[in-house]
Simulated assay, not measured.
Amino acid sequence: MAEKKKDEPQEKPSGGKMKWIILILLLLVLLGGGAGVAYYFLIYKAADQTEVAADAVDAEEGAAPVAATPAQPQGPLIYHELEPFTVNITTPGPVRFLRLQMTVVTRDEGVVAAVDKHMPMIRNDLLALLATQESSVMNTPEGKDALREQLKQTVSGILTRMGAPSGVTDILFTDFVMQ
């Protein structure tokens, strides 16, 4: 009974080759997944960080970034007070004079030095701008905000033309009298 007959088919070891195929396939899947993770962290993330840095450079140069990221403050605010401006208003109306004192807000000491260096040109352009304002418009909060923005653009434009740092953050009114 212990002997096998020659006519009976012998059992083949059926799991040997199949186990190797499954093991190789699992190994390939793990290697592919590892390569995908490595690509994501090493190449894709590095390219994404390079784009963010390029967008920040474009934003400094005046181009609009594709994805706006919150700007990190570069340093504390610096307030640089300018001498008072007194201007004759040339537009018709009850107001004839404007006395204005303002402060330039920046985060860069270089801007303060540039404003002091180019003060004659800045005063000239600001006086010309202030003289053309309408008193009825300047008497409203929206008009004052628009004037502040015009003054900021004028100062920044002069500093840019002169090749100086032009990082003016804001213009603040410290005295505003119309008579």
Rank of each mutant, 00 (worst) to 15 (best):
L42C: 03
L159T: 02
G143Q: 07
A63V: 06
V29L: 15
L151I: 15
Q153C: 00
A47R: 13
G34Y: 07
P92Y: 00
H80D: 08
I21L: 15
S136A: 14
L42K: 11
E81C: 00
G16S: 14
A47P: 00
I78N: 07
V57Q: 10
M162I: 00
T69W: 02
L172P: 01
D108W: 01
Y39F: 12
K152R: 15
A68V: 11
A53I: 05
A47Q: 14
T140R: 11
L100T: 07
R99M: 05
L82S: 06
S135L: 01
A164I: 02
N124M: 07
H80A: 10
T106I: 03
T132N: 10
L129K: 09
A114E: 06
G167E: 12
I43T: 12
E81T: 15
A131K: 13
A46G: 02
V95F: 01
V111I: 09
I122T: 06
Q153D: 11
L82Y: 03
D108A: 08
E134Q: 14
K4L: 13
T132W: 02
P65Q: 05
I89G: 03
A63D: 09
Q72Y: 01
L159Y: 06
P70T: 05
E60L: 13
T154E: 13
A56E: 11
P94Y: 02
T86Q: 10
G143L: 08
L25E: 09
L42A: 09
V177G: 00
A46C: 03
A67N: 07
M1Y: 08
T50F: 04
E61G: 05
L159H: 08
L77R: 09
M178N: 04
L77M: 08
L130K: 07
I122V: 13
M138K: 06
Y39K: 13
P84K: 03
P65A: 06
P94D: 11
M102I: 10
E142S: 08
G16A: 15
V29C: 10
I122G: 05
M102F: 07
T90E: 14
M138G: 04
T69S: 04
A53M: 08
T91G: 01
T132V: 00
L30V: 14
K17S: 12
P76F: 06
G167K: 05
R148C: 00
V66Y: 02
Q74T: 14
K144C: 05
A131Y: 04
F97S: 12
T103Q: 10
M119S: 09
L27F: 14
L27Y: 07
Q133A: 13
A128N: 12
D48V: 05
F176L: 11
G110Y: 05
P94K: 09
Q179K: 07
Q10E: 14
G32H: 01
T106N: 04
F173H: 08
A128V: 05
S156I: 00
P9A: 12
F41L: 11
A47I: 02
A63Q: 09
R123V: 15
E149H: 12
A53H: 10
V155M: 09
A146L: 06
R148L: 09
L100H: 02
H80Q: 08
D125I: 00
S135I: 01
L42T: 10
L82I: 02
M121N: 11
F97V: 08
E149P: 00
G62K: 04
A56P: 04
R96Y: 01
V66I: 07
I21C: 12
P165E: 04
F85S: 06
A54G: 01
D7N: 13
Q74C: 04
A68R: 06
A54R: 13
P9R: 14
V52K: 15
E149F: 12
P65G: 07
M178D: 04
